[in-house]
């Protein structure tokens, strides 16, 4: 069964009120989230390597009495759903998870160097991307967060559709950063954080940022000034990173959303890595384990304390 058939069946049977998926956008390669409400629309449902928006974000915006909804979920989307169910933001019985194997998400910005490239001129084969017939290694076009993805196929689903996607090499850009001397690292982050214009696209695209009032926009207490200076951007992004500790599902939606192309997910991925390494916890993957900040062990790391 293909994704479209699955979605159409659900809508025809009226077992769900809608199918949350992707459809083609107005620009080549871009896709946009869409809530399919009737079976005729399903022809427009697509799943391509350009469907990076984390759909869990959109579930939070549905009215409370919406009823059951089906959602197309890659590995990271399914992790996000698990966390949101655990945090009582969604009800599992109101979800029908249409699991899909993720081929790895391609950064459409990296295709910009080919002028007037059409969607029909790009094809994907085993680990390569064919652009106007010329093969290129797929991994150099993938998003940084996808290259270090551990769960490309969903962990939680009601039905798993499509074939398993071809593997690509695991590449951890965080390790490369850790190897730099600390002055270089700060130079890098200070430059990137200074570029931020605080449009909050990263936060709004994040499936885990559902606070009614964000600390960044809070007036009382006032944490940061609305103007984007390095020190205010620093508090915004690090504050968000701390809020996401043990919650970030490493989908990279924040980085994809950034209109300036700041590699902002690096911070959140680093936090997820710290939590994984030292507290043996992965958000949305470990279903039983308690969230890292609501528990403790007496032998937690202590060497950093004076």
């Amino acid at each position: 069964m293909t994704l479209r058939e699955g979605a159409r069946k659900l809508l025809e049977e009226k077992s769900v009120q809608g199918v949350l998926g992707y459809k083609r956008g107005s620009l080549p390669f871009r896709t946009r989230p869409y809530l399919f409400r009737n079976p005729q629309e399903v022809e427009e449902l697509v799943f391509t390597p350009f469907c990076g928006t984390n759909l869990a974000r959109y579930l939070l915006r549905l009215p409370g009495d919406f009823g059951k909804v089906a959602v197309v979920a890659k590995g990271c989307d399914s992790r996000a759903l698990t966390v949101l169910v655990r945090e009582h933001q969604l009800k599992r019985e109101n979800l029908y998870i249409l699991g899909v194997h993720c081929p790895g998400m391609v950064d459409w910005r990296k295709l910009a160097q080919w002028k007037d490239l059409k969607e029909s001129e790009v094809a994907f084969e085993e680990g390569t991307i064919l652009i106007r017939g010329v093969p290129h290694p797929l991994s150099s076009f993938l998003e940084a967060s996808c290259k270090r993805c551990r769960y490309r196929s969903p962990l939680e689903y009601d039905i798993l559709l499509g074939a398993e996607a071809s593997p690509f090499p695991f590449e951890d850009h965080l390790a490369a950063l850790w190897r730099l001397p600390k002055e270089k690292r700060w130079e890098f982050f200070a430059q990137e954080l200074s570029r931020c214009i605080r449009c909050y696209a990263c936060r709004n695209a994040c499936p885990m940022c559902y606070c009614k009032e964000c600390f960044a926009e809070s007036h009382k207490p006032l944490f940061i000034h609305p103007s984007p200076t390095l020190r205010d951007n620093f508090v915004f992004h690090l504050g968000r990173a701390m809020h996401l500790a043990g919650r970030c599902v490493e989908c990279g939606a924040c980085e994809r959303a950034c209109p300036l192309g700041i590699p902002i997910a690096t911070l959140f991925l680093a936090v997820a890595e710290i939590v994984r390494e030292h507290f043996a916890f992965e958000a949305g993957a470990s279903v039983e384990a308690p969230a890292p900040f609501v528990t403790y062990r007496e032998d937690d790391p202590n060497a950093f304390i004076l």
Binding site: F188, L267, A270, F293, D300, F304
Partner: peptide, 28 residues
């Protein structure tokens, strides 16, 4: 303080990742 230690450890490591080691200290 056990809960605090977990939060501080993550923050400490994150600041270390950013190259801001040595500015934030914790003690008992």
């Amino acid at each position: 303080n056990y809960f605090a230690r977990r939060k501080f450890f993550v923050l400490y490591e994150l600041l270390r990742f950013l190259g801001l080691e040595g500015r934030v200290h914790f003690s008992w």
